[in-house]
């Protein structure tokens, strides 16, 4: 069946991406030549540094190290975090559920805002309503997420004392990080969905639905929405990394115990193995999300199910 082949080809593509992320994460660590210089800093004598480099295997030729690194990475072995003496991967994976929770809430929140806005602006396209909504979205989209985060803290923690400013103690801790992430995300979702809907609304079958007695509103919220959801979900999944890159900073602002905070902590402490593991884990997450989007698209659109490739 075409479906299995389609998913198979996307899986292969995803594998390439994960492989690429491993290479990139290796290159990051080796940008300056020898990570032991970075770890040790200037505090150690040249002999001590050479010893560390030898221990970590950095005195061997680059291709050999890359091969070893990749072999380890594919087994999930990125070495130990020198801060916690856990494996680097487990440091990242422990933080992952919190980040996943935050991102899911932010996406749900942004979608709940973006879907009605996009639908309304398509129904009222070309009118003042459409224009004013587009301007509002443009304004919201220009707000830096970490600034929104601090403003929220200022209002709801400092002044009103309603919500906890940092950490993850209760469900209420989730509110501010979610809003800080969802707000700048919403305009991007509106733009994607509005574009997808406008593409669909211009098609012949929409005219023929009108001819069969469906109102514009009914078409846009049902048949056209379903049609538009396929490119929308695909594009959203494709850009999810770019759109949610700010998660790292927002996590840091709220001291949210997620991958972003773990990454920031690792960077500030030069814990290279954890940084590498985080890069690969996030790229893997990206591939999985895109795979989910592909499955969705092929469930909704019969043409993808029967298409031979791509």
């Amino acid at each position: 069946m075409g479906f299995a082949r389609f998913i198979g080809s996307r899986l292969l593509q995803g594998l390439f991406v994960v492989f690429g992320a491993m290479v990139v994460s290796f290159l990051i660590a080796n940008l300056t030549g020898n990570p032991s210089d970075v770890i040790g800093g200037s505090l150690l004598s040249p002999e001590q540094r050479a010893q560390i480099a030898h221990q970590l295997g950095y005195d061997r030729p680059l291709p050999e190290r890359l091969g070893d690194y990749l072999a380890g990475a594919f087994r999930g072995d990125f070495g130990m975090s020198y801060q916690t003496s856990e494996t680097a991967l487990s440091v990242v994976l422990r933080a992952l559920p919190n980040t996943a929770l935050l991102i899911t809430c932010a996406l749900a929140c942004a979608l709940a805002l973006a879907v009605p806005v996009a639908i309304l602006s398509v129904l009222r396209r070309g009118t003042g309503v459409d224009r004013s909504m587009r301007s509002t979205m443009m304004l919201v989209g220009a707000l830096p997420d970490f600034w929104i985060a601090l403003l929220l803290v200022l209002v709801f923690s400092v002044n009103l004392d309603l919500l906890p400013a940092i950490g993850f103690q209760s469900a209420s801790s989730l509110i501010m990080p979610t809003v800080a992430l969802a707000l700048p995300l919403t305009p991007a979702l509106v733009r994607l969905l509005r574009g997808a809907l406008l593409d669909v609304v211009g098609q012949d079958f929409v005219t023929s639905l009108r001819a069969r007695g469906f109102s514009d509103r009914s078409i846009v919220t049902h048949q056209a929405f379903k049609n538009a959801s396929v490119p929308f979900v695909t594009l959203l999944a494709m850009q999810v990394g770019w759109l949610l890159g700010g998660t790292i900073i927002v996590e840091v602002v709220f001291a949210w115990p997620g991958v972003g905070s773990a990454l920031n902590n690792a960077v500030q402490n030069r814990d290279i193995a954890v940084v590498q593991a985080a890069v690969v884990v996030i790229a893997t997450g990206y591939v999985l999300v895109n795979l989910l989007a592909d499955v969705y698209a092929s469930l909704i659109d019969p043409r993808i199910r029967t298409a031979v490739t791509t």
């Binding site: 992320a21 850009q239 949610l244 890159g245 900073i249 985080a278 996030i282 990206y286 591939v287």
Partner: peptide, 8 residues
């Protein structure tokens, strides 16, 4: 696309 720029 897979590695968010900020992460990189």
């Amino acid at each position: 696309l897979a590695i968010p720029p900020l992460l990189l």
